Amino acid sequence: MSNDSTPGPQPGDFTEQLRASTTGLGLVWAQTTDGVIGKDGDMPWHLPEDMAHFTRLTSGHPVIMGRKTWLSFPDKYRPLPGRTNIVVTRQEGWGQTAEAEGALAVKSLDDALLESQFAPGHETVWVLGGGEIFAQTVDVADVAVVTFIDSATEGDTYAPELTYEWKLAASEPATGWLTSASGTRYRFTLWRRTETK
């Protein structure tokens, strides 16, 4: 793999291409090169370019997440604007709490997938995590959009494994890395399922 770095941010066109070419159930996450996606309920990095990419990619579509992922967003960003925010939780009555304001609370992933089909932009539904929700959806999703971060960060939540059923379909940049304004190197990737569900 090349160590060349391309000055960033340059993700806009690639993100728009992903929006235009993606339908069905999609997974979206950022991870370190060794698979860490979270630590103590938060992302252990600061990458504004990835947040901008995430916002453009998911805007206008329903998003599904677990309660802990919902709570990991700062209050001012909850609910994520321009998206139906569907939150899976086993906590009885959580949907009626102030903490859940703006969320459509459901008890199971099946309920979340059903509700998503009545939401604006339902031709593409994005799953945001966390680890348990990803584990339940990785075998039924159609696409995965993964940001790789060139960092070795300790964490307690890991990305799902994309097995032989998945194939890398696109990468930005094609080789090497983009470089954040913060100096962190990163790459956007699109994976598609090659095996039928």
Score class of each variant (00 low, 15 high):
Met1Asp: 14
Ser5Asn: 12
Ser5Met: 14
Pro7Arg: 13
Pro9Asn: 11
Gln10Met: 12
Phe14Ile: 05
Gln17Gly: 10
Ser21Met: 06
Leu25Glu: 00
Gly26Val: 05
Gly26Glu: 02
Leu27Ala: 04
Thr32Asn: 04
Asp34His: 02
Pro44Trp: 04
Pro44Ala: 03
His46Ile: 07
Asp50Ser: 02
Thr55His: 14
Thr55Ser: 15
Leu57Gln: 10
Thr58Leu: 08
Gly60Met: 10
Val63Gln: 08
Trp70Glu: 00
Leu71Gly: 07
Ser72Lys: 02
Pro74Leu: 02
Pro74His: 08
Asp75Tyr: 06
Lys76Thr: 09
Leu80Cys: 08
Asn85Leu: 06
Ile86Arg: 01
Val88Trp: 07
Val88Glu: 09
Gln91Trp: 11
Glu92Phe: 06
Gln96Tyr: 10
Gln96Leu: 09
Thr97Met: 11
Ala98His: 08
Ala100Gln: 01
Ala105Val: 15
Val106Leu: 02
Lys107Tyr: 03
Leu109Ser: 02
Ala112Val: 08
Leu114Pro: 09
Glu115Ile: 07
Gln117Gly: 07
His122Gly: 03
Glu123Asn: 11
Val127Pro: 13
Gly129Cys: 05
Gly129Gln: 07
Ile133Glu: 00
Phe134Leu: 01
Val138Lys: 06
Ala141Ser: 11
Ala141Leu: 06
Val143Ser: 14
Val146Phe: 00
Thr147Gln: 04
Ile149Phe: 12
Ile149Met: 12
Thr153Phe: 03
Glu154Ile: 09
Asp156Gln: 01
Leu162His: 10
Glu165Cys: 10
Leu168Thr: 04
Ala169Tyr: 09
Ala170Ile: 05
Glu172Ser: 13
Gly176Trp: 05
Trp177Val: 10
Ser180Phe: 06
Ala181Trp: 03
Gly183Arg: 09
Thr184Pro: 08
Phe188Cys: 06
Trp191Arg: 13
Arg192Glu: 09
Arg193Pro: 03
Thr196Lys: 12
Thr196Gly: 13
